[in-house]
Design a protein around this nucleic acid. Structure first.
Length: 268
DNA sequence: CCCGGAACCTGAAGGC
DNA sequence: TGCCTTCAGGTTCCGG
């Protein structure tokens, strides 16, 4: 699933391929991928524009355009962007002036494209970047205080901190030895500090491994990432804790599968 | 404001 | 073999 490390890997590998290029055409095998404006306006306004930069905010990819507008893409759960034709599940194709193409592959059709004047307008309200300088242990502690929702649910709230998804939340909580169902406000100062450090570590490791290909994530070349092979609990159904050997458990937290070690991550 | 659950969508995998 | 159920989860929306 594309979370911060996966989106960042795609951004880095796509950047030299698209920056400086002009969009010369668009194809939509599935038109529902365009959120706004309406498809015809989306196309007429985007074609002819030069891509001046490729950025990322949380899990959003932002293509800066010569007009000052931005093409924003969210891959949601199963989206990926390819240099070459993945052949199946192609929902949109961006044709470039050098003959290159970007293929938006998305089996489950959750992915979205926007063409906007203000890139901030696509998301409700994003919290600080999980790997940014402004996201400190102190900021995390402030944002968790008084909160009664499970810490796992709060880590997935992009308005609290931007970029963490289900896999890396499980990894960070295991690393910090915190049970996923603990109330966010019940964490001690030491636990919040451990959690903050763990979040930054698992996300950085994920980027260094070029993302985790547990399911439908691919890099633009079509190659997988390797981060999932280093996961200690996420998606490790039926396996044992790498630290103590206790069988890992999976419980739903806010309807999200949460993998953890019941011995290393106590609920009390 | 805060919390929890539904909705969106469809392929893969497992059970019988 | 084939049908059926369950699972996967990022984000927004809505009711309490």
């Amino acid at each position: 699933m594309p979370e911060l490390p996966e989106v960042e890997t795609i951004r880095r590998e796509l950047e030299p391929y698209v920056v400086g290029r002009t969009v010369v055409g668009l194809s939509f095998p599935w038109e529902g991928i365009v959120r706004r404006p309406a498809l015809e306006e989306f196309s007429t306004r985007l074609i002819g524009q030069r891509i001046t930069g490729l950025g990322r905010r949380g899990k959003y990819l932002i293509f800066s355009l010569s007009s000052g507008q931005a093409l924003v893409i969210h891959l949601k759960m199963t989206g990926s962007l390819w240099f070459k034709d993945p052949e199946k599940f192609v929902r949109a194709i961006i044709h470039l002036d050098d003959g290159g193409n970007i293929y938006f592959r998305d089996p489950r059709k959750f992915g979205i494209m926007w063409l906007v004047d203000d890139k901030e307008s696509v998301a409700v309200k994003l919290g600080p970047e999980a790997l940014g300088a402004e996201f400190t242990a102190k900021v995390l502690a402030e944002r968790l205080s008084q909160r009664t929702a499970p810490i796992k649910a709060l880590l997935l709230d992009q308005g609290l901190v931007a970029g963490i998804g289900n896999m890396y939340a499980d990894e960070a909580l295991f690393s910090a030895k915190i049970h996923p169902a603990r109330a966010g406000g019940s964490l001690t100062k030491k636990e919040v500090e451990r959690l903050h450090k763990a979040i930054r570590q698992v996300l950085s490791d994920g980027i260094n491994e070029k993302g985790a290909s547990t399911d439908t994530y691919f890099r633009p070349s079509g190659e997988p990432g390797t981060a999932h092979s280093h996961f200690r609990v996420a998606h490790r159904r039926g396996e044992s804790c790498p630290l103590c050997g206790t069988p890992l458990e999976r419980i739903p937290v806010r309807n999200r599968g949460s993998y953890f070690c019941p011995k290393c991550q106590k609920e009390a």
